[in-house]
Design a protein around this nucleic acid. Structure first.
Length: 518
RNA sequence: GGCCCGUUCGUCUAGGGGUUAGGACGUUAGAUUUUCAUUCUAGAAACAGGGGUUCGAUUCCCCUACGGGCUACCA
């Protein structure tokens, strides 16, 4: 059986309004690959004037984690990828939590049984384990289903008795013995499978909840999803979904599938996981996540000091490009330029160095005004309270080119608000001389004999005094910097002095002199 | 093991039957900056292998190798 590709009309999308969904399972922090899936969903929807829906796939009650759903919502909000319909904003196809749609699924599963496309199975987990141990490569499928305890193998009266007694059971799809199922993936093109290789997946669990397989089909249908994006790890179960769409009689309304390439570990191989972040020293989650049970905190991109614009930008470039050399994109530009046929097929190893480069670019290209709130927050976290916004703006403008992460603003701007406590004493002390003490003592007068406190003026006075004292500029510039900043970094030293102002500059010279000559 | 997907510099990728195989990150060297960073210039660095098809394959086809995914009453 072949499911032909519907014509994929890029930008035309005449017949139906585009509707896509992101359907995470609320089991913990949101992985960067998850955010990329959201992003591609969102970009595709917005590009085609469609809707982006958030649906919570919480069908596994044993894996439910408190707070995870709220966390996901916050992530989307932080990235500005706001759903048009979701458990919180609601929508015409509510509820958007599968746990709240539970009663709905059984009916469809029963319908499949009535049609002979599914069956009850009474095997206990223990029995299944045993079989798997007994028979190498055991698959619950055409080869073994008749030797299991289910409504296909058992006499009808026995099945009725078991059901009547409320015996725990699941419902499994009955895969055809020997068919070829194929479809046209928007990213991969023609893909095909032999049904004989696929097992009879459980579609309704003993607790009455559907598994992903049933839930995704029923909800995508009911929610009128037109295009389904998901990670490549779902490709092997696609034939189950395809068959379900057909058996339920909805084949003509099946969404077009797009299986996204995976994001891989930077070293070695395999899917990128939370553990890799901890091991290699970079975040994997969008935002910090605290495990409610263990209290363990996993740091996220947001808390490490990434701008959401940069995060979205770098994620978009992991597996997609617009065909030009452009690498920095705003969300709006991405929406405008996004196209599925420019998504690559191969998985991408995550490169944290490049990720940081994106953030540095975004910081450099942002205005001080755009950054001020975030920088103020960073400084505030270090005990610095901003009282003069104009001052902060000027400082951001002079230091933002040297910051890669927002947190760097503390190192790069903190000394504008706080006199240095620790000095890079080794850079000055060994070469300190009495004439330097003299120089700086007199420098205070030299600098204060002026109505202005402009960099050029300060520099001229500084140089004149150095010459007068027969000191090489290099001998006193660095000490001056360390007096004001504490270390060997920062913008031009006279810019710093100018920004600091006369009183503060003189104060720092005094204080540092004490330390240097002690 | 079986099935499915994939393979261009270290990494992300552009390209596509005839190209000096392009860009970016990182890296190396130099310039600028009397700190550091930014910036600028230059350099090293890739079509997995073997068969076809073809006048010609990195590009199309097949095989192999390698990598990845799946193989739960998890998603």
């Amino acid at each position: 059986m072949h499911y032909p590709a519907k014509p994929y009309l890029c930008g035309v999308m005449s017949e139906k309004k585009v509707r896509v969904r992101f359907a995470p399972s609320p089991t913990g922090g949101l992985h960067l690959g998850g955010v990329r899936t959201v992003l591609f969903n969102y970009l595709f929807a917005k590009k085609h004037g469609g809707d982006f829906i958030l649906r919570i796939e919480d069908t596994d009650q044993s894996r439910y984690v408190a707070g995870a759903e709220q966390y996901i919502l916050e992530c989307l909000n932080w990235c500005s990828l706001k759903p048009d319909e979701s458990p919180v904003v609601g929508g015409p196809y509510a509820p958007y939590r599968q746990s709240e749609r539970k009663p709905l699924y059984r009916e469809y599963a029963e319908r499949l049984i009535a049609q002979g496309h599914a069956y009850y199975a009474f095997d206990t987990p223990e029995e299944l384990d045993l079989k798997r141990k007994d028979i190498a490569n055991f698959q619950y499928g055409h080869a073994h289903r008749m030797s299991m305890r289910n409504s296909l193998s058992l006499p009808m009266h026995e099945v009725e008795q078991l059901l009547h007694n409320g015996t725990p059971h699941v419902i499994r799809i009955k895969m055809p013995d020997d068919e070829t199922i194929s479809f046209n993936d928007m990213i991969r093109g023609y893909v095909s499978f032999e049904t004989a290789q696929v097992d009879d997946k459980v579609i309704l669990k003993a607790d009455g909840m559907p598994t992903y397989h049933l839930a995704v089909v029923v909800d995508d249908y009911l929610m009128k999803i037109t295009h389904a994006f998901r990670g490549e790890e779902w490709l092997p179960s696609a034939p189950v979904h395809l068959l379900l769409w057909e058996y339920l009689g909805w084949k003509d309304e099946m969404p077009q599938w797009a299986h996204l390439p995976l994001i891989l570990k930077p070293d070695g191989h395999g899917k990128l996981s939370k553990r890799d972040g901890a091991r290699l020293g970079f975040p994997v989650y969008a935002m910090s996540w605290t495990d409610p049970k263990t209290g363990e905190i996993t740091q996220g991109f947001r808390e490490l000091g990434f701008l959401p614009e940069a995060f979205v930008n770098l994620l978009a470039m992991l597996g997609w490009n617009d065909g030009t050399d452009q690498e920095i994109f705003t969300l709006d530009e991405l929406v405008e330029k996004f196209s599925i046929d420019r998504i690559s097929k191969a998985g991408a190893k995550f490169d944290f160095e490049k990720a940081k480069w994106y953030n540095a670019e975004w910081i450099k290209n942002s205005s001080a005004d755009q950054l001020k709130l975030k920088v103020a927050e960073v400084l505030h976290g270090k005990g610095i309270t901003i009282i003069n916004e104009d001052y902060l703006i000027k400082i951001i403008d002079t230091v933002k080119d040297r910051c890669v992460l927002l947190a760097d603003f503390y190192q790069q701007a903190g000394y504008f608000f706080k006199m240095p406590v620790d000095y890079d004493i080794n850079a000055v002390k060994p070469k300190w001389t009495l004439s330097k003490t003299e120089f700086f003592t007199e420098l205070k007068n030299a600098l204060s004999y002026s109505e202005t406190f402009e960099p050029n003026d300060l520099e001229a006075r500084f140089k004149a005094l150095a010459e007068e004292k027969s000191l090489k500029l290099g001998e006193v510039m660095l000490p001056f910097r360390i007096m004001l900043v504490g270390g060997k970094f920062g913008p031009h030293v006279f810019d710093i002095a100018s920004l600091l102002g006369e009183a503060e500059t003189l104060r720092r010279i005094d204080k540092a002199l004490e330390v240097f000559t002690a």
